[in-house]
Simulated scan of single mutants.
Amino acid sequence: MNTSRADTIWRLMAPDDLGHVTTLAARVHPDYPEDTTIFAERLRLAPSGCLSLMLDGQFGGYLISHSWRGLLSPPLNTLLGSLPTPADRWYIHDLVVTPQGRGQGHAQVAITLAENAARQAGLPTLTLTSTRHALQFWARQGFVPEEISAEEQAILASYDPQACLLSRPVG
Rank of each mutant, 00 (worst) to 15 (best):
W68V: 01
D17R: 05
L71G: 15
A157W: 04
L128K: 01
G60I: 00
R11S: 13
E146R: 08
R89G: 07
I148H: 00
I9Q: 06
A110C: 10
L24R: 01
P30E: 14
Q108Y: 06
C50K: 12
T131G: 10
P169R: 12
F143V: 06
L80N: 04
G142W: 03
G70N: 07
Q100Y: 07
L166P: 01
I9C: 11
P124K: 01
T112S: 15
S130G: 06
I9D: 10
I64V: 15
L83K: 12
S67V: 05
A46Y: 10
P75G: 04
R89L: 13
P30Q: 05
L55P: 08
G60T: 03
D7P: 04
L126G: 00
V21Y: 03
Q153I: 02
P33H: 03
E115G: 09
A107N: 04
V96R: 00
P169H: 11
N2A: 14
V144S: 14
T131N: 11
S82F: 11
T98N: 00
A26T: 09
T131I: 09
P84Y: 08
T129L: 04
S4E: 14
D16N: 06
A157K: 05
T112R: 15
A46D: 07
P124I: 02
V21S: 05
I9T: 12
